[in-house]
Design a protein around this nucleic acid. Structure first.
Length: 791
RNA sequence: GCCGAAGUGGCGGAACUGGCAGACGCGCCGGACUCAAAAUCCGGUGGCCUUCGGGCCGUGUGGGUUCGAUUCCCACCUUCGGCACCA
């Protein structure tokens, strides 16, 4: 008599066993011993513990990683699969503010809940490696690394315009300003001038366009390419007639230089303030104050003549210098040569102010009105003109980037303190290594108020300068959370090391991450920053690789009501209810069965029933098979072949195609076939294969059924391998077409040669009726598949 | 405007290398079991036509290549994502 399928009992039972045995612990290699060749670092982006629960998007993500982990482990790979918490930062702090509690309390409670949910879903995580960004044992090394960046000239302080979120009361990075608004809270961002720490990401701008040894989705690379915005062109010097000074211009179209009819400066350009007429300065003050968004949205161009003229170095032409807000100070040099004939914006400007238009490229893309360069194709013209200017020291080829350095100072409390002190005598001085970490003090009033909350804490702020011993002040800002997440994947590998952030030997063994799973929304942020970190560390000799993530996969969004589940939108659905109702195995199977993992999917629990039916069916059938005495020599039938085919499909889909929903379909097919043949001699083989294949998806029920079949420890049993000999078919279904349309199909012997197949096809009554009366022009035979007659 | 992805039944989707379109599941319809229901099991389920043998149409639209196209090529439409007064 088959017992009832009771998921909760089974799941608790096996989770306890795995925990007691440390089943999913992955020991690090030891330098003196040989290391495994097949190693796999499975990583999914770590969660923010800012909400009180995981949501179904997390469930999708981590279940995918889990299936990959189990299949790799059982296929003989040494797999590490860690987990941790992105505990610092705005989302966590804002959640705490809403609750009226200290951020530490909120996030530590959330971490506990989420960890419990993860364990309840049975994910194979090596919990020994767990880290959280807010622990001093972690952020000590974030601070240490920060100092390394400074020491190596890749992190620096400067004053400049920054994006200020008036709602969150802090500076935010360019990468997290979307359409002029704060990516987190949606408030319109203001420009402010402040002194801030920056990571010099631009130092690697060119290299970030290359992905040595890393297979990334084209889409992600395109997003990063757009963001870096490399463009090749030339820098050209125009002399100001009245003052004799040179103004540089960046252009991607030096071939149109003869068409320049005016010269324009950004309102913020220093020349404007130094020389321009009062009217022009007045314009610049107003225009410069308008947000860029608004400037871009304006339909007509505005501007004021400065009273000065620039000399075009290629032909000596005298151009009026204007100031206009369509020229941007932070791209190129903040100055342009206006060519109305070949640039849409310049054309609008020229039209508004009645400036001349001189075409210099004809319909065939050749230069005209360009003196000795006439007739050259545009591309050649570019090179020739730049070369000519270079001879006279008036121009040179240049590359420009859209990428800006990453601003990392935040005027908020809940983050990693910046390990520098400000001394009036010595300047900005690093906190000595032996004094790290600079502990984030527990303060009562951490609410944002426009100046960093730590600044009000005298106990924290007042220090002695490490260099001269005189009075000094700590840096009251904290770091952007993305600094923490730029290296956490390295700390997992050596999370208990208290002498260094990590040991290079173990990190070089595991890294780069074999498979990284996470949202595509991090393409221009976290994924770019992490690459920057690793390239820098590689240059300093800290790591032996140059890319952090060998393969990247982006899951689709799990949506509710059409929008991505997120706390800010309030449409979060956690796993607890469904797990209560159906068990973890059903939830794991269902979230993956919903559709291709890289596409968005609307969450609805409606289909879970189908999965539960499937599990109950599996449960009953495996019990039925187990009750029958095992047959000898049981592998020579259709069921065995189906089982072998299923092994091939599941393995190929998970390991090569990274596809998780089709293997479930394949296993359902096998269950359907087995359900009608529990007495077949190969039924036991089919049942064992099935249970073994489903283990990565539904590890608890699989383990239980493995026991029913008389075995144990499925989680470490070898992954099934298909028996090639059983995949061979003696017969196949021959499809017979006439003019490409299927007219008949029947089983034939697989050994028949082409002539024999044609002969068999001709014998078909149905086919004959279509062949009669026509002239046979061609016969196409596809071995093992079809015969097509063309009449 | 530039760059990238996608469009298949009532729904989620499958078809990997050009070779039987719609696997698998949901939903729906019918049947068995039952006093009844749930659960379970069996069968059906793209559209139109049918003399019930089958026939025709069908993968966003229009063309093309091919014996044969969901798959390749060209043009277009729609949706989604990235960049964007970036010179």
């Amino acid at each position: 008599m088959t017992p009832r399928y009771e998921p909760h009992e089974i799941e608790q039972k096996w989770q306890r066993v795995w925990e007691d045995e440390g089943a999913f612990r992955a020991p690090n290699p030891v330098q003196s011993e040989p290391t495994a060749e097949n190693h796999w670092y499975q990583l999914e982006m770590l969660p923010y513990p800012s909400g009180p629960s995981l949501h179904m998007g997390h469930v999708l993500n981590y279940t995918m990683g889990d299936v990959q982990t189990h299949v790799r482990r059982r296929s003989g790979w040494h797999v590490v699969r860690p987990m941790g918490w992105d505990a610092f930062g705005l989302p966590a702090e804002n959640a705490a503010i809403r609750e009226g509690r200290h951020p530490r309390e909120t996030i530590e409670r959330n971490i506990e809940t989420m960890r419990g949910q993860m364990k309840r879903l049975g994910w194979a995580i090596d919990w020994e490696r767990e880290v959280s960004a807010h622990q001093p044992t972690f952020y000590r090394w974030t601070q240490w690394l920060f100092q390394q960046f400074v020491a190596n000239g890749l992190c620096y302080r400067r004053e400049g315009p920054v994006n200020w979120c008036p709602n969150d009361q802090t500076v935010i990075a360019n990468e997290y300003v979307v359409d002029g608004r704060c990516e987190r809270c949606g408030a319109e961002v203001e420009l402010r001038n402040m002194t801030q720490w920056y990571m010099r990401t631009t130092a690697y701008a060119d290299e970030l366009l290359e992905y040595p040894g890393a297979e990334w989705p084209e889409k992600t690379k395109a997003i990063q390419r757009n963001w870096i915005g490399r463009s090749e062109g030339a820098e050209i010097l125009f002399r100001v007639e009245e003052t004799g000074e040179d103004l540089a211009v960046f252009t991607t179209r030096p071939d149109t230089l003869f068409g320049a009819t005016f010269f324009a400066l950004a309102p913020e350009h220093p020349f404007v303030n130094a020389h321009a007429s009062e009217e022009a300065k007045e314009y610049a003050r107003h225009a410069g104050a308008r947000p860029v968004e608004e400037r871009a949205a304006a339909t007509t161009k505005t501007g004021v003549f400065t009273g000065f003229h620039a000399v075009n170095p290629i032909n000596g032409e005298r151009l009026p210098i204007w100031v206009s807000d369509f020229v941007l100070m932070d791209y190129g040099t903040g100055a342009i040569g206006g060519v109305p004939a070949h640039d849409e914006r310049d054309a609008q400007f020229a039209e508004t102010f009645g400036l001349p238009v001189v075409p210099v490229i004809d319909d065939e893309g050749r230069l005209i009105n360009s003196e000795r360069f006439d007739g050259l194709p545009s591309e050649e013209g570019k090179r020739a003109i730049v070369a000519a200017l270079e001879q006279e020291g008036r121009g040179k080829p240049t590359v420009n980037y859209r990428l800006r350095d990453w601003s990392v100072s935040r005027q908020r409390y809940w983050g990693c303190p910046i390990p520098f002190v400000h001394c009036e005598k010595c300047g900005v001085v690093p906190v000595p290594e032996q004094d790290l970490p600079v502990i984030l003090p527990d303060i009562e009033d951490y609410a944002p108020k426009g100046r960093p909350p730590l600044a009000a804490n005298e106990e924290f702020m007042a220090v002695h300068c490490p260099q001269c011993g005189g009075p000094a002040r700590r840096d009251p800002d904290t770091m952007d959370t993305f600094v923490d997440s730029s290296w956490y994947f390295l700390r997992y590998i050596d999370s208990h090391n208290d002498e260094a952030p990590f040991d290079r030997f173990v990190v070089d063994y595991w890294l780069p991450v074999s498979q990284y799973i996470g949202g595509i929304d991090h393409s221009t942020g976290h994924l770019l920053y992490s690459r920057f970190f690793v390239k820098a560390m590689n240059d300093w000799g800290m790591v032996g690789f140059r890319e952090p993530f060998a393969r990247v996969f982006h899951q689709g969004w799990v949506t509710l009501g059409g929008t991505k589940m997120s706390k800010t939108k309030g449409n979060v659905e956690g796993p607890d209810q469904v797990v209560d109702a159906y068990g973890a195995d059903a939830v794991r199977l269902y979230i993956l069965f919903m559709g291709p993992a890289d596409q968005d999917m609307e969450w609805t629990p409606d289909g879970v029933e189908g999965i539960v039916r499937f599990l109950r069916r599996l449960w009953r059938i495996v019990h039925e098979v187990a009750e029958r005495p095992p047959a000898d020599d049981a592998r020579e039938a259709a069921l065995a072949r189906k089982a072998n085919e299923t092994i091939v499909r599941v393995t190929d889909d998970v390991l090569r195609r990274f596809q998780f929903h089709t293997p479930i379909s394949a296993m359902m097919e096998l269950v359907n076939e087995l359900s009608g043949a529990v007495d077949a001699p190969d039924a036991r083989f089919a049942a064992e294969t099935l249970v073994s294949l489903i283990q990565p998806y539904a590890p608890h029920v699989a383990e239980e059924l493995w026991g029913v079949l008389g075995h144990e420890r499925l989680w470490e049993a070898p992954w099934p391998e298909a028996d090639e000999s059983q995949l061979v078919r003696d017969t196949f279904e021959l499809v017979v077409q006439v003019n490409g349309k299927v007219r008949d199909r029947f089983e034939v012997d697989a050994s028949l040669d082409e002539d024999a197949l044609v002969a068999r096809a001709r014998e078909s009554e149905r086919v004959r009726s279509y062949l009669d009366g026509g002239e046979l022009r061609k016969t196409i035979v596809v071995p093992q598949k079809l015969v097509n007659f063309v009449v």
